[in-house]
Simulated assay, not measured.
Amino acid sequence: MRTTIAIDDALLDQLKVRAARENTTVSALIEEDVRLGELRRAQQSDPGRGRFRLRAFDLGRPKPGVDLNNNAALLDLMDNE
């Protein structure tokens, strides 16, 4: 569908630069941004939508000698077990 909108000149210039950088059209950028804005509004109007509860489990303390701040050592430990 074709429509006409009034848009700030500086904003249009920014969109043109972005469109060239992303190899797309200004129309496609505007459509995508409006769609994302509508999605955010829908989620804000229904705060429970899209949310979930993450269940936590207590697995106890780490094994002796395990340093949870050392990623390389943790990977070695997991590979050896």
Score class of each variant (00 low, 15 high):
Asp76Thr: 03
Ala6Tyr: 08
Ser45Phe: 10
Gly50Lys: 06
Val26Gly: 06
Phe57Ala: 11
Leu75Cys: 10
Ala56Ser: 09
Leu77Ala: 14
Glu38Ala: 10
Arg40Cys: 01
Ala72Glu: 08
Leu29Gly: 11
Val34Cys: 13
Leu11Ile: 09
Glu31Ala: 13
Ile30Trp: 10
Arg61Pro: 05
Gln43Met: 15
Arg40Ile: 03
Gln14Gly: 02
Leu74Asp: 10
Val34Phe: 14
Arg49Phe: 10
Leu36Thr: 07
Asn23Asp: 14
Ile7Arg: 01
Glu38Asp: 05
Arg61Thr: 11
Arg21Ile: 03
Phe52His: 06
Leu39Asp: 07
Leu11Pro: 00
Leu77Ile: 07
Arg40Glu: 09
Ser45Val: 12
Gln14His: 09
Thr25Val: 05
Leu54His: 07
Arg51Asp: 01
Asp13Ala: 15
Leu11Phe: 09
Val34Gly: 09
Ala72Asn: 04
Gln43Glu: 15
Val66Gln: 08
Asp9Cys: 01
Asn23Met: 07
Asp46Thr: 10
Lys63Glu: 10
Thr25Gly: 10
Thr24Gly: 04
Asp79Met: 12
Leu11Trp: 07
Ala72Gln: 11
Asn69Glu: 14
Leu39Gly: 02
Thr4Val: 14
Ala20Asn: 05
Ala73Ser: 15
Met78Val: 15
Pro62Val: 06
Thr3Glu: 10
Gln44Asp: 11
Arg53Gln: 13
Asp67Tyr: 08
Ala19Asn: 00
Gly50Asp: 03
Arg40Asn: 02
Val17Gln: 13
Asn70Asp: 15
Ile30Asp: 09
Ser27Met: 02
Ala28Ile: 01
Thr4Ser: 14
Asn23Val: 06
Arg21Ala: 10
Arg61Cys: 03
Ile30Ala: 12
Arg2Val: 11
Thr4Gly: 06
Arg49Val: 00
Asp58Ile: 02
Leu11Arg: 11
Asn70Lys: 08
Ala28Lys: 13
Asn69Pro: 03
Leu12Trp: 08
Gln43Ser: 13
Phe57Gly: 02
Arg53Pro: 00
Gly48Thr: 11
Asp33Pro: 00
Glu31Leu: 07
Gln43Gly: 08
Ser27Pro: 04
Met78Tyr: 09
